[in-house]
Design a protein around this nucleic acid. Structure first.
Length: 842
RNA sequence: GCGAAAGUGGCGGAAUUGGUAGACGCGCUGGACUUAGGAUCCAGUGGGGCAACCCGUGGGAGUUCGAGUCUCCCCUUUCGCACCA
């Protein structure tokens, strides 16, 4: 296959960058501005890289290289988020220690990434499973522990039998584990929990100033789930206890006609009257047997009367207390005041069980719905009557507080973060127990390293497999000298990724997490690129840890990641199917807005791209693409596919396009037969047109890279190259900037061309070509002419012509005249430099 | 069900944000050079029509001199959330 020798060139420059430490930022001039561009570091799986990884990595690499040429000190590191289930599951299956598997996978990933020419400072590589690294993960945990932000609690938690471990709320979706999709159940266990709820408001408020995708911010807001309202206590005649509820609508208290407790509510037993005991017990049992999934899936409201009554303090009325599973034990206080007039769920329940409904907000005239949840004027509400919702809320809260019936209250959906796992392959806790009391180990006892084990299997008990490491387990507390027992749980996968961006700044520091001066220089991360699947997991956890470190004075910024971008998923190749069977593309054609079989047009064909998966067999291996087209063409193609953030289908065939483009650039400058520069490379002064196009390209490419619009940056470079072919030659003074513009995108080829153009050093720090608007000025402009809004022709006008002149020229144009004949010109619009529109009648 | 985003050639996508729709690329058609080509170069390529022209950005209405872009209704797709009191 003819073409430029990408294999030789790419290997050559990768070696060059490595030996010359081209991208090292260890000795830098700190008077220059900094730019920290970070990728979400990968979990080094056994499958190696897939084409989705390099999408984000290429984007960040382009920015990193561009910023270097713009004079920034650029921090662009890479590492491994290597604790986690797959290595451990592999260990269970084969007996191979996860350390071995991890090392092998990391080596493979590193080789693959290097083959793509990413400009990482490899001296800063970190690995979360390295004791030198997790020593500091443990140290941060200690900070949390010592501040009361890490505590042990026994509460119902998610337990996944299949994975043999507990999971955090964020890791359980619809009652199934996020990894593997295994069923999970709620089970009370004593576990480590991090008090993320204490940071709920800070995490919420911090979002406002972040340049993040709106959808991601919204997801975090929803996850935190702040709602403002009141807590109200309901007295129970003949009982000293009160039922406390949370409501966002204290203004509707007069309409609370009954109460509902979650079936699990602690007061249920005490409240239930004798005659109701059986029905209540049966209902509770039935509710308990339902999985979380079944419970959320069911839409109809069921419940049972407890036989007890409470007093509505607002109107002194006695209201019945029910239990129903539409009230969740885990939210608010696990009990509600039911206001069927203003809440649709309560309305449905009240209708089902013939409970009274009282409207306390007047619905608008003609309102035909059931419960009315909108704004309006209070009715049937004593001292609130006539007030609008907002005012009524405030008045009611004041009344509740004055009478000791309740108080203003903010409630969150966010729960504290369940932080322990019953697995082997994770960070051990820096904690020992003396007489059952947890104590943090002193700093010089860190890291607590993982003991060797024969059997990595989860024990199925809350202790986890580490409990089997007898010699490791029993120890002596260095502080008190007393015998102690180690914590046998490990930290979740997310721990190591909560702070890795800080370690990249100072990866080899044995004394501190990160040197404060370096931290001040590099933080925050200016651009963070990674998948949206971490919107409420990693990205929320990391912000939480960061805020704790900020409050403790270890970091200087309240937020870690200023700008965040999610790359869109790359789907498999477009597939044509009939009833699930693949059909070759050339047997298919489009009829109207659908695809059908060419020879049987009555058969519809489904055309779509699917998520890459082993089972579907549509996974693309980047190694093969690089082998065939080269890393530069691969990088270019991934960026040329479409907008970075968009989901888009892969097309191996289309990689040919960017490969061809690189070949065209190559041949414009290099002639291998002459073993030197191409004849097309001309030693002449550029023409005005050439300069104009060059500077337009500089402007476009610069703006597009800044805005991460790589697809249009590449097309601009293609246009410049195509033009050079039309010109028949390329002046050397254009070739150099062209090569520099190409450098961030296709760095290997750019370096090689730069060298062949006579430069000794790498172009990595060569100044970015500067754009000069003066070259864009032309003597005449071509202005399109519309008549009644329809395109009819084009005129050439002097670029300094005024409105009147342009309109005169338009009216005099031959083609335009045909349309004006016999008609009356009613109006003429000229948008300077843009367009002329002549409005005619008759 | 609720919320958000998006629907443009055979395909991926452009369109200076209200001003020449389809840049760039894939694919396709024709030609050149070639023993050959899945290499390269040149030309063409939204649909209809011999043409002048007409039609065209999911569908329908509207605002405007002018709408892919703004407004309203509907359809479809994708992504979130899903009894949160």
């Amino acid at each position: 296959m003819a073409g430029y020798p990408f294999k030789t060139i790419e290997a050559k420059w990768q070696r060059y960058w490595e030996t010359n430490k081209t991208f090292s930022v260890t000795a830098i001039d700190k008077s220059r501005p900094k730019y920290y561009v970070l990728d979400m570091f990968p979990y080094p799986s056994g499958d190696g890289l897939h084409v989705g990884h390099p999408e984000g990595y290429t984007a960040s690499d382009i920015v990193a290289r561009y910023k270097r040429m713009r004079g920034f000190n650029v921090l662009h590191p890479m590492g491994w988020d290597a604790f986690g289930l797959p290595a451990e599951q592999y260990a269970i299956k084969t007996g191979t220690h996860p350390k071995i598997t991890t090392e092998k996978n990391v080596n493979r990933f590193r080789t693959q990434l290097k083959a793509l020419g990413f400009s990482y400072d490899w001296e800063r590589e970190v690995n979360t499973t390295d004791p030198h690294y997790y020593r500091w993960t443990q140290w941060i945990f200690k900070q949390l522990f010592e501040r009361g932000l890490a505590y042990q609690d026994e509460k119902p938690v998610w337990w996944c039998a299949e994975l043999g471990t507990t999971l955090a709320n964020e890791e359980v979706i619809d009652g199934k584990s996020e990894i593997g999709g295994f069923a999970c159940v709620r089970r009370p266990l004593r576990q480590w929990v991090l008090k993320i709820t204490e940071y709920a408001d800070a995490l919420l408020a911090g979002l406002d100033d972040l340049d993040w995708p709106a959808s991601t911010k919204e997801m975090q807001r929803n996850w935190i789930g702040r709602s403002d309202g009141a807590e109200i206590d309901f007295a129970i005649p003949g009982n000293a206890r009160r039922i406390r509820v949370f409501t966002t609508r204290p203004d509707t208290l007069f309409g609370a006609t009954y109460m509902v407790l979650a079936p699990e509510h602690e007061l249920v037993d005490a409240l239930t009257t004798k005659p109701q005991k059986r029905a209540v017990a049966a209902y509770r049992e039935q509710a308990a047997s339902k999985s979380e999934l079944e419970r959320t899936a069911q839409k109809d409201k069921t419940g049972v009367f407890t036989g007890a009554y409470a007093v509505n303090a607002a109107n002194g009325k006695s209201i019945p207390i029910w239990i129903a599973d539409y009230v969740l034990a885990g939210y608010g206080t696990g009990a509600i005041m039911a206001v069927p007039g203003q809440d649709q769920r309560d309305w449905e329940f009240a209708t089902e069980y013939a409970l009274p409904i009282v409207r306390t907000v007047a619905p608008p005239a003609g309102f035909a719905g059931e419960a009315y949840t909108g704004d309006g004027v209070a009715i049937n509400s004593g001292f609130l009557d006539g007030l609008r919702v907002e005012d009524a809320k405030a008045r009611m809260i004041a009344w509740l507080e004055a009478g000791g019936h309740g108080a203003r209250r903010v409630n969150y959906k966010l729960r504290d973060w369940l932080f322990s796992r019953q697995r082997y392959w994770g960070e051990p806790f820096p904690i020992v127990f003396i007489d059952g009391e947890p104590r943090a180990l002193p700093d010089d006892a860190l890291p607590v390293t993982l003991p060797e084990l024969e059997d990595f299997r989860p024990s199925g008990s809350p202790e986890g497999p580490l409990a089997a490491a007898r010699a490791w387990l029993e120890t002596v507390d260095p502080t008190s000298g007393r015998p102690a027992r180690r914590e046998t749980n490990t930290m979740p996968q997310w721990a190591g990724s909560c702070w890795y961006y800080l370690r990249f700044i100072d990866p080899h520091n044995a004394k501190r997490l990160v040197d404060p001066d370096l931290e001040k220089y590099w933080m925050p991360v200016d651009l963070y690129i990674g998948g949206s699947e971490h919107a409420v997991l990693h990205l929320l956890y990391a912000r939480f840890w960061h805020k704790v470190l900020y409050d403790a004075g270890f970091v200087s910024t309240p937020e870690p990641f200023i700008k965040l971008v999610h790359q869109g998923t790359i789907l498999g190749e477009l597939e044509y199917t009939v009833n699930g069977e693949r059909v070759a593309e050339d047997l298919v054609e489009k009829h109207g807005d659908r695809f059908v079989l060419r020879d049987r047009p009555e058969v519809p064909v489904d055309a779509r791209a699917y998520k890459m998966s082993k089972s579907r067999g549509n996974v693309v291996n980047p190694d093969e693409v690089v082998e065939r087209f080269g890393a530069d063409a691969f990088r270019l193609y991934e960026m040329f596919m479409g907008p970075l953030e968009q989901v888009k289908p892969w097309s191996t065939r289309s990689v040919d396009g960017t490969h061809r483009f690189l070949n065209r650039v190559w041949r414009l400058i290099v002639d291998e037969r002459r073993d030197g520069l191409a004849e097309t490379l001309a030693d002449r002064a550029p023409t005005a047109e050439e300069l104009r196009l060059l500077h337009q390209t500089i402007a476009t490419v610069s703006e597009d890279i800044e805005a991460l619009r790589f697809n249009t940056a590449i097309s601009a470079l293609m246009e410049l190259t195509n033009a050079a072919y039309k010109w028949g030659s390329l002046p050397k003074t254009l070739a150099e900037p062209l090569v520099l513009l190409l450098a961030p995108l296709a760095p290997h080829m750019a370096e090689e061309l730069w060298q062949r153009l006579g430069h000794a050093a790498s172009l990595a720090y060569e100044p970015w070509p500067s754009y000069e608007p003066k070259y864009l000025v032309t003597a005449t402009l071509e202005i399109p002419v519309q008549i009644n809004g329809k395109m009819r022709g084009r005129i050439e006008v002097p670029s300094d012509a005024d409105e009147q002149q342009v309109i005169e020229l338009a009216r005099a144009d031959e083609t335009v005249l045909r349309y004006l004949e016999g008609k009356e010109l009613k109006r003429a619009i000229y948008v300077p430099g843009r367009i002329v529109n002549l409005v005619v009648a008759g």
